[in-house]
């Protein structure tokens, strides 16, 4: 009986996750006439919608924008957060206050920051630029990445570094040879979180870009016009837009397991 309940629960949860995705892909393969006839289960698959988003509208540009902004912001975030988190974890830099201030940027609704940032970016000419959005994503992801990495660095016993010092290594080579290999699973998880967040971010991308730097997430909303909703092309673009995040989730799951058992690695 308990097994049956278990499987029922699994099926319900799976349906909740899979049905919307399945709907997206199924819809994307339907012709415009088929989309509004849900009673008709069998339909002739067509690539019409995919052709539409490639030829009629600048979807590839949106993909390229999202890719540039996501990769650049994540690389910069990791470049700063890794040493910052290390320093917070090892030297208690700022006596805890600095770490708190860093995290506190995630404690208010992001939209609170939107208006001041908007005026600032307008004056600096950063609206609708890649750099503008990259800076914004750095601002939001940095605090999160630093806090996450801080936890991973805390797991590494300080004695390991002492041993390496006595063994004749300086701070930098210790970080490179001892600390970084141990933090790798944690760093991978953090990187993936940043990538996914930046890729999916909608609010700021919507407010701060128009045409030049528009990302996929915003592009998806454009199908929602005042006259009609282009379900087919929207589903096609959705189907493509979620592929990177699905890949990231698949890549991440083994690291999450490793990351969680990280404490057991202690020497």
């Amino acid at each position: 009986m308990r097994r049956v309940m278990f499987w029922i629960a699994v099926v319900i949860v799976l349906c909740a996750f899979i049905l919307p995705i399945a709907w997206v892909y199924v819809t994307s393969l339907k012709s415009p006439e088929d989309i509004f006839r849900p009673e008709k289960l069998a339909f002739l698959p067509t690539l019409y919608n995919y052709k539409y988003i490639v030829t009629v509208r600048p979807s590839l540009l949106e993909f390229r924008n999202a890719l540039i902004i996501t990769l650049a912001s994540t690389a910069l975030v990791m470049g700063v957060s890794l040493p910052a988190a290390y320093s917070f974890a090892r030297f208690n830099t700022g006596g805890g206050h600095l770490l708190f201030i860093t995290i506190s940027t995630r404690m208010f609704p992001p939209v609170v920051a939107a208006i001041p940032f908007f005026f600032l970016f307008r004056d600096w000419g950063l609206l609708d630029t890649h750099l503008g959005l990259i800076l914004l994503y750095i601002y939001f992801n940095m605090s999160f990445a630093t806090f996450l990495l801080y936890g991973f660095f805390r797991e590494i016993p300080e004695e390991l570094e002492h041993a390496a010092m006595v063994d004749g290594y300086g701070r930098l080579s210790i970080f490179r040879k001892v600390i970084f290999p141990l933090i790798k699973p944690g760093a991978a998880i953090t990187t993936v979180f940043c990538l996914v967040w930046a890729w999916n971010e909608f609010l700021f991308a919507f407010l701060f870009t128009r045409r030049v730097a528009r990302t996929v997430a915003v592009g998806l909303a454009v199908f929602w016009g005042s006259i009609e909703i282009q379900w087919g092309p929207m589903a096609a673009l959705m189907g493509l837009a979620i592929l990177p995040t699905l890949a990231a989730a698949w890549f991440m799951q083994r690291f999450i397991i490793r990351g969680l058992t990280f404490g057991a690695v202690k020497g």
Binding site: E159, H162, A163, G168, Y169, V178, G267
Partner: peptide, 27 residues
Amino acid sequence: AMAFEKYSLYPHFSVYENIAFPLRAPT
């Protein structure tokens, strides 16, 4: 050279690499 009470071995190295680590130090 120091031996630590808590061992402080490098978990990502093999035993060989652990022992050889001081020999490879740049300083």
